[in-house]
Every structure is written in structure tokens, then in C-alpha cells.
Design a protein around this nucleic acid. Structure first.
Lengths: 260, 260
DNA sequence: AACATCCGTTCCGCTCAGTGAGACGGCATC
DNA sequence: GATGCCGTCTCACTGAGCGGAACGGATGTT
């Protein structure tokens, strides 16, 4: 669930369509129409009608009498400008970080209470990471997320804290005041770290890419690896120099979009 | 325009939504709301209302008071199962083709009268290709497209021919009977070639990935490069052995989805 | 200053697009 | 042949969505 559907939407139809698409998307494999109807709470006849309206646009497809996301999403995903330009402009620096540190490098943006991974460069030294391009993880439980939250407007962070801090790793920060303190220190140092907060044995060093006079955090870059094997200080220096270099391209970097 | 919107849709709302999204997608940069209203022919008030319903779902974003595709499309694009499994299963063979031939390798599927590129491995020998992952090109003008059409049901091909054969390269086949003859030969040989049909100096050798007893063409792989420098016969052999190897994974390969 | 555009948003009475309970036919499984 | 689940279709009802018009703001023009 990306956005908590804030207010009452003037067009209920859009919410129904989104519910169906999200339902199909959440399912890793295919899903039957009745199952979609059951999970969304929509009547079967309504579900059937909407699904058949989405098919000719390529937004959904039927494979073996079951629903999957359509090819059109693949196309539109490649056209989405923000992730694409972000990828393009940061790629060289990410590749450099991987080479220098020998660890995996992540690029993520903040979206509601989650971070979404835009690009991941994997290293042999840090295999089997659960992260996935396009994947979504609670922001407070990752270094990139904390880096972004630390420089976001306070009300954004508070809203997330109020929503509850779910533990996803052995040492995820779940106490509001501990998180506030951590964010404060990150805001002072410009660097966020994480150890076993997002998963067992994980460690991560991240920094936000800040642009403009308002220091808007448009994305964050991290270096992550196995906790015991990482040179934290070295990674900090490397990440810091990468985001500093990126600030010089600030004019080209895509701003965060409003979604409300 | 992906699909010609075949029949009258029972839900007009979906068509409006799709029209707006397609309009934003076609624009490489951002686009104003009034401009969307103008191009789609929708009233301004209607456009405004629908756009504001799409925002909270992350399907659209507002950047500098202009519309762009939302982050959600990026996420959903990465989740679309057909392109993703196709990519994963063919990657090793594509990489092998690039190594052996030294040229660029394309993977594409048929969608209506176009092919959509699912994966592209570029080679230094063939720079500056206009093709793009997620990009869309008229099927009859490319080797991959002809490979797919040759093994598609005749009515599919005839529908495309009836729609007119647009020229996009110096030697694009625009005559219906010449195309029918070409497809016939491709169907016999299992290999499609192309020289300056999709662009100046381009040359391409493609073969369809056929699965099942019905020989359903789920995708096609091609090797492309500069016309004058290519070893056509060598590429044919290489491509043929790649798709033959892929047929053995037939059970894992994703079927084409129905969209009607 | 006054005027002219063009922008996006909001208002509000009308109406037809979309609803959804229920019936239906098909296809397994018991 | 009975039961259960599937997806589709029908159809009378109604309220969700429509869209012309008015509005307020930003920007440019004379």
C-alpha cells in the first residue's frame, strides 16, 4: 500500500481501479478475478467490468485465465522521468562507490512512509540482499530512509512516527524518541548509519542528496554490506564525497513531485 | 498510442484516465494540465478532477506545476511479470550472443502493431541505436517484428497490413504483398533479416522464441549492427542456437497475455 | 493602471454512466 | 447429479461524475 488514501476522493472510480491494480501488483504470481473481488471488497460484477475495461489499454493481461500486470506498465515504468534521470545522473558516482568500497550501492527516494529503491549495484562481497529495484521498505528501518527523513520537514517525519514504527530487523528503531534523536544526529553529521536495523548482519552508510537553498532531500545513496566486514569510516568518506559531487549537478536533478 | 481502442468500452472513465496518462507519457518532459485537456479533448474541469484523483495514488506527480508520470509507474513497471521473467530467462543467452557476435542484442515482444523492447544489450561496435528499453516500433519495420509476425495467426498480420505500412527507414517494406512474401520466407527459414528497413545503415538478424505445440511466438531475439560490417551467416547461426536453447525452458517462459 | 490571457480550481443542477444483486452457463470435484 | 466456484450478463435504479460558467491569481501587454 503506497499511500494511505488520505482524504475522500472526488472520483471513487479511480480508487476502485487503483485497488484492483494494486491487488494484482501485490500478488507475485497471477491472480483470479474472484480473488481480486474478494480482497478489494468489490462486487464480482463490478470487478469483471472494470478489469475488462483495463485490458484493451494493456494495463492488465489475462494469462491462463488469471490476471497479471500488463505490458503497458513496463513501458510507462521506463518512461517515468524522475527515476530515470536520477538513475542516469547518479550512475557514474554509484559505480565509483562500488569500486572504491567494494560493497553494494543503493539509490532510493522517499515516498510516504517508505523508501523506494531506484537503482541497486550489487557487489560480490555482499550477496543475497533482499532489496529490489522498485521495491518498497519502511523508511525508518533503513539508512537511506533515515538520511531522507532527517532532512525532510518535521511534520512529514512526525506523521510517520505517529503511524507506528514497525520492526523489520533485529535492531530496527521502534521507539519514537530514539528515532528523533537518531535523526537529529544525522541532520548534524549529514551521514546516516544502520546496523541490523533492516535485516540480520546488515550494515549500511547513507547520505542524502540535498539540492537548492531549502536543502531538499531528493534522494539518498548508501553503501551496504555485511556488518562485521565493513569499513564504516571509509564508507562515510566515500559516500560524502559522492553526494557532494552530485550537488553540483543540482540543477539537472529531478525535484520531488507533489502527490496531494 | 498502444491499442486502437477497439470497441466501445463499457466504462468511459477508464478511457479518460488512460487518455490522460498516455498524454503525460507521450510528453518526454512535463506538461501542463490545460495542455492535457486540450490534447485529450476533455473539459478542463474534468481533467483537473481526474488528475487530482490520480495524484494520491502516485500515478501522476506535479513538478513545478506541471504533470509527470508518478513514481508508482516505476514500481509497477518493475513488477510486471511477463517482461521481468522474460528478461531473467533470456539474459544469459543474450549476453552470449553479444560476446559471440560482438554486436548489440535485442529482446522484444509483439503488442498490437508494434514491438516493444524488453531488453537491450549494447555493443561498442554498434553505437547510437535509437532503440530504448520499453520503446515501441512498428513491427513490420524490424527484424524482431517480422520474426514475430511470421509466426503469428494470419488474421493478426492481416489486421496490421490493413492498417497501413508506415516507412520508418530507407528500405522499410511498405507493400503488402512484399511483406506477405517476406513473412512466408521467414516462416520457412525461422530467421528474419533486415537491412536499412528500420533506419539508415542498420542491419539485423532475428529469430522468434517459439513455445508449445502451437509454436506460439512469445518473443524474438535479434543481433543488430552496421549493415556493411555484419557477418549475416554467422549471426544467423548464433541466433538460431540461442532460440533453440531457449525452447528447452519453454515451460518457464511467460505466455502472451490476452488483452481483449 | 487598466486590460488581456492563460492558468488551475470550484460551483452546482442535470443526467446518464456505472452499479450490484441476482441469474446464468461452464467446469471441476465429490 | 449435486455441490461449489468460476466469470459473464441482465436490468432497473440512482447518485457519481459531468461540464459550462464563474472565479481568483499570475503574468504579460498596451
Amino acid at each position: 500500500m503506497p499511500h494511505p488514501a488520505e482524504k475522500d476522493n472526488p472520483i471513487a472510480m479511480v480508487d476502485r481501479i487503483a485497488a484492483i491494480i494494486n491487488c494484482v501488483a501485490e500478488q507475485s504470481s497471477a491472480i483470479s478475478m474472484s480473488e481480486v473481488a474478494r480482497r478489494t471488497g468489490l462486487p464480482k460484477s463490478t470487478t469483471s467490468r472494470i478489469v475488462h475495461s483495463l485490458l484493451p489499454h494493456g494495463l492488465l493481461e489475462i494469462v491462463d485465465d488469471e490476471l497479471v500486470l500488463g505490458l503497458r506498465f513496463f513501458e510507462l515504468g521506463e518512461l517515468a522521468s524522475r527515476p530515470r534521470t536520477l538513475r542516469r545522473l547518479t550512475y557514474a558516482h554509484m559505480e565509483g562507490l562500488r569500486r572504491v568500497t567494494g560493497n553494494s550501492v543503493h539509490l532510493a527516494v522517499l515516498d510516504g512512509r517508505h523508501v523506494v529503491y531506484i537503482e541497486i549495484l550489487r557487489s560480490r562481497a555482499t550477496p543475497a540482499l533482499p532489496s529490489r529495484v522498485g521495491g518498497r521498505v519502511p523508511a525508518h528501518a533503513t539508512a537511506v530512509g533515515k538520511a531522507l527523513l532527517a532532512f525532510s520537514p518535521p511534520e512529514v517525519t512526525e506523521r510517520i512516527i505517529e503511524g507506528g514504527l514497525e520492526a523489520i530487523g533485529p535492531r530496527t528503531i521502534t521507539d519514537p524518541d530514539r528515532l528523533r534523536a537518531a535523526l537529529w544526529r544525522i541532520r548534524a553529521s549529514g551521514i546516516a548509519t544502520e546496523q541490523e536495523e533492516s535485516g540480520r548482519d546488515s550494515a549500511c552508510v547513507a547520505a542524502p542528496i540535498l539540492v537548492g537553498e531549502s536543502h531538499e532531500p531528493i534522494a539518498a545513496i548508501s553503501v551496504s554490506g555485511v556488518a562485521a566486514e565493513m569499513d564504516i569510516a571509509g564508507c562515510e568518506r566515500a559516500v560524502r564525497s559522492a553526494v557532494d559531487a552530485l550537488r553540483e549537478q543540482a540543477a539537472l536533478l529531478p525535484r520531488r513531485g507533489r502527490t496531494m
